[in-house]
Design a protein around this nucleic acid. Structure first.
Lengths: 227, 227
DNA sequence: CTAGAATTTAAACGAACGTTTGAATGAAGG
DNA sequence: CCTTCATTCAAACGTTCGTTTAAATTCTAG
């Protein structure tokens, strides 16, 4: 019943695989990254992935889960903190936005691996693979739910459908911003791979998101200028 | 020297391949879509793709080019019209935004094939394939250049880097909005595949984009409330 | 030291991939 | 009618894919 045997090296093998896979997924995508590329870069045997993870599909999920689970946990904590601080008042919209997106930007600007993961995550949202979609849905469901409710309390005059759309737009803007999109980088001259790119982007993105969130409602059904 | 022989059916074969490929690319992605899936759905022989297009890579480019080239041409025309209308005055920001994004939304809400293509295009921005990136860059370069200049003239007090970032954010928000992202659709309850979804989204997206564009500059270096 | 489980290794598996080939098919031109 | 050329077709090409196997190795527990 001893779990730890050769497990130190075993864990190291696992992590080497996860690291190599993440880098390759960012560079080439899930489908275009082969097991042989992963194990080659990781310096482990080809069979190691199937031994430690079972299949490529599970590996993909594990690569995402490794950083996404803590990220969403922190998003929950950040909203907890904001709600505690607000007492029985609703949390102000810009605090909600900050709680959600600062968690991402912290991860993206913390380390090279974090930035790499956020790039991957941005791409993953457009991934058609059913396995990936299913995992993302279950991982995000509780988080989106709580933030939606927080927004609804903060903006009681705004219809929930409107809030969901704006949340959708904000997620899109951030995902594209952090995932880089080299094609557009070339066009716009904006480089994401410079070390402090995330730090320079952060206030700009937050300002943009808040501006979009506070924009007047399209139907002309009143405007919302809460801060 | 007779070009038209059996070419009526030949063009039909080409289009059948393009249609089937587009639908499959949306559903499964470029890599995960095989030639056999494409030719099977199109009802043509496996060798037809290589005969008519040369390779799978060229087919991917042709699928994108078929609708993206006219789309970007219309973006140019829309900006032409706005500039003509404005005379020697700079075009107002909301007119520029409208010129760029209305072209996309027109395509997305015009037909099922148009919506399908916009979904594909949204995904394509995150595509790591060098061939695809290269094509997108060359196709978008002149368009982005002209719109950047138009924004610079319309907002002379805003630094060009700021404008590029916001253009980047706006593109991200729109791409995600039209490409659907089923995972988040499930979470947010927002469905993109309903027939009039684009029409209902359009004013909301435009309002959001303009709100973001007009947001106060983060550095505190003055705000911009041009309309 | 030894038994035995955990891990690594080299090799091979069948399946699916994009592409190529050469013959069959079809419609126009001389 | 027969040649000609574009197109279609069935079949096969060699390669690479994810996965599996069984032996070799490494490590730990008793």
């Amino acid at each position: 019943m001893d779990v730890r045997r050769t497990s130190l090296t075993a864990h190291e093998t696992r992590n080497r695989i996860l690291d190599a896979a993440q880098a390759l997924f960012v560079a080439h995508g899930f489908e275009a990254t082969s097991m042989r590329m992963i194990t080659g870069d990781a310096g482990v045997n080809l069979a190691a992935v199937n031994y430690h993870f079972g299949s490529k599909d599970v590996l993909v999920r594990e690569v995402l889960k490794r950083h996404l689970q803590p990220l969403n946990a922190q998003r929950m904590l950040a909203l907890d903190a904001a709600e505690t601080e607000a007492g029985d008042q609703p949390v102000k919209p810009h605090r909600i936005v900050d709680a959600f997106f600062s968690s991402s930007l912290d991860l993206a600007s913390g380390s090279a691996a974090g930035r790499e993961f956020m790039q991957l995550l941005g791409r993953t949202f457009t991934e058609p693979s059913p396995t990936v979609r299913e995992y993302l849905a279950t991982e995000y469901a509780p988080v989106i739910g709580r933030y939606r409710d927080a927004f609804c309390r903060a903006l009681p005059t705004v219809p929930v459908e409107e809030i969901l759309w704006r949340l959708h737009f904000m997620l899109g803007a951030m995902s594209y911003a952090v995932s880089g999109i080299d094609s557009l980088q070339v066009l716009t001259g904006v480089r994401i791979d410079e070390p402090d790119a995330m730090q320079r982007m952060r206030p700009r993105l937050m300002s943009f998101l808040l501006g979009g969130l506070r924009a007047p409602l399209p139907a002309g059904q009143g405007t919302d200028h809460t801060t």
